[in-house]
């Protein structure tokens, strides 16, 4: 911890601060040593902890799945192959059920999203003080290990999905078709085109926003509760911490699932002709 015997406010703030590396107006490119410094860096800053942990989780996912994929046998599967195959089949079924078009990248995209988000979310059930304390010993001031409690991570994914939605809308429907869809739904008359356009564009823009903020909001709120629980006396923490952690096994999976399903549904809508 940065300060000895912090007040609860300081403690919470400390736990919610990312390890930020960026261009400070006075110090130049450096690691922020306080929340204020991090804020002053503005856009030109990188959350090293978010990036590091998310990439670690992504690499873990890909390495594990790649290893299984290389050794995949058509015979009786065993060990990790069972788990991986279960995930793959789950995603395949999901894609088949929710996605109406024909696009080979949707299923692997959905699997990447699902497993990656699941792994990132799962970091949450690790004790909130463990990694910050460990890194404090190593001289690192801040360490927020759950990437999905950082809106940059969730919005980074949802905006990527948004880019795909726009790309496929143009590709499948053409510029004219896409414009027609935006201006002729829900009211199929040219008289109401401006109104339709307004509605549809708002609807379109809300998609990535709701997608990213839903995941962020759930994870962030859960994290805050964990931090609040850890303010209790050490002998009482488990009373609330254990049920909350068990409950989060559900939340973690559910949020990863929701993000994945909505991505598939949005992309399916982008592939639909009218």
């Amino acid at each position: 911890m940065a300060v000895n015997n912090p007040t609860p406010t300081e403690y919470i703030q400390h736990h919610l601060q990312n390890l930020t590396f960026g261009l400070h107006p006075e110090n130049g490119w450096s690691i922020a040593h306080s929340t204020e410094e991090a804020r002053e860096m503005g856009f030109w800053a990188l959350h090293l902890d978010t990036m590091g942990w998310s990439i670690a989780m992504g690499v873990l996912f890909l390495a594990l799945f790649r290893k299984v994929g290389k050794a995949a046998t058509t015979g009786v599967p065993s060990g990790w192959q069972n788990v991986v195959e279960w995930v793959v089949e789950f995603i395949e079924d999901l894609t088949r059920a929710a996605f109406n078009g024909k696009n080979a990248i949707i299923a692997p995209l959905a699997m990447t999203l699902f497993v990656w988000i699941l792994l990132m979310n799962s970091l949450k059930v690790l004790p909130v003080d463990f990694f910050p304390a460990l890194f404090a010993k190593l001289g690192v001031d801040y360490m927020k290990i759950v990437p999905t409690t950082d809106p940059n991570a969730t919005m980074g994914m949802s905006l990527s999905v948004f880019a795909l939605i726009i790309y496929y809308s143009f590709k499948v429907k053409g510029a004219g078709g896409f414009a027609k869809e935006l201006s002729l739904t829900p009211f199929n008359t040219w008289l109401l085109a401006p109104f339709n356009l307004l509605l549809e564009i708002i609807g379109l823009l809300v998609k990535p926003l709701s997608l990213g903020l839903r995941l962020f909001g759930n994870m962030f709120a859960g994290e805050v509760i964990f931090i609040l629980i850890s303010l209790l006396p050490f002998w009482a923490i488990w009373v609330l911490d254990v049920p909350w952690a068990i409950f989060h096994i559900l939340v973690v999976t559910l949020q990863a699932f929701i993000f994945t399903v909505l991505t598939i549904v949005y992309l399916s809508a982008a592939h639909e002709h009218h």
Binding site: N18, G42, A45, H47, T50, T112, N152, M155, G156
Partner: peptide, 22 residues
Amino acid sequence: MNINMTLIGQAIAFAIFVWFCI
């Protein structure tokens, strides 16, 4: 909790992961 370059970094990481997975 600031929106910053991490957003772009995450998008890039995501794109690479998806590409590798595909």
